[in-house]
Nucleic acid binder design. Structure first.
Lengths: 160, 160
DNA sequence: AAATTAGTTCGGAACAAAACGAACTAATGT
DNA sequence: ACATTAGTTCGTTTTGTTCCGAACTAATTT
């Protein structure tokens, strides 16, 4: 029953809410992820997480496993210590961007589908300029994501 | 009890799912929005929407009002006709981008909050290069959104 | 005035998601 | 061998969401 600073609790709460909104994971999972992001790369043990979040062991267990499976978290062990130590995975941001890219690609595809449908079914009065600018925007977005991903990859190769 | 094409029903279904995933609105609201996106700018009446979606009047009413309130839809009337005709609002894509910008700004702010917290509380071993690249990415994203919004605004002024 | 049209409101049924507790396993420590 | 630790499993409870139907309003038509 360690004491945790009110500051950290508040930060975990607000960042957890943000994550919950952004991704579609359960509130508790989002809070665990936030907690890990705000903790050193020593990470935390299962019990420390239970303790900090005040949630049940079972809830922590399932949400933690969810996060591990999503690869947004990882764990390591110390020889002669039974516990596992959990932390935000080092390429968490890389994975986020990859997911992002997927979403943008989907968006591009859906936008195409919409255009084709509308062209086929209604006389499109005047070429929709917003639609054009939006498509342009999606392509630009795709580019900056891909560039960033490449930079990250290069960085990985250099630093290991 | 008009007949609607199977093709349109399928398209509404798949695009509806996509909207449902992207925004956080109810399934039925997403389908209504999809339907409007795939319909001409004549829009559809309340009853036609009920008819197409096979949902109850009450569900349509509340979801339609939600969409109107969000300004992703609008309606117009015809003199001497009691009905309202609903359609996707003309600056739907503009609004989407505005919302997007808000999210990116929030993201930038949260990223800052995280960095400050971590700098304060743990010796950050080595300057986190992914973090840096991610921040750079967010700024680029902000730029392209703002540019697109400006182009859209200019377009509005020219075309009216 | 009665009926129809165009919707709205509200209470609740049906379902889905999130978290919990108790009982369990499997490994380590005493 | 017995107790403790580190977590998992599973059935239940709690909470929240989505949609519906029935009853209603307010305007228009007959």
């Amino acid at each position: 029953m360690k004491e945790y600073s009110v500051e950290k609790k508040k930060a975990v709460e607000s960042i957890g809410l943000h994550i919950e909104k952004r991704t579609q994971i359960a509130p508790l999972a989002a809070r665990i992820q936030a907690l890990m992001i705000l903790s050193s790369d020593k990470g935390m043990s299962f019990d420390e997480i239970v303790d900090f979040t005040q949630a049940s062991k079972s809830s922590i267990s399932s949400n933690l496993n969810l996060l591990l499976q999503m690869k947004s978290m990882e764990y390591y062990t110390i020889p002669g210590d039974r516990k596992r130590y959990f932390r935000s995975s080092k390429d968490y941001l890389f994975l986020r961007l990859e997911k992002y890219l997927e979403m943008v690609n989907e968006e591009i595809q859906v936008t195409k589908q919409i255009n084709e449908f509308n062209k086929k079914h209604h006389e499109v009065s005047e070429e929709d300029s917003f639609g054009f600018l939006f498509k342009e925007f999606l392509e630009q977005q795709k580019n900056i994501i891909q560039n960033t991903l490449e930079k990250m990859e290069r960085n990985l190769r250099t630093n290991n």
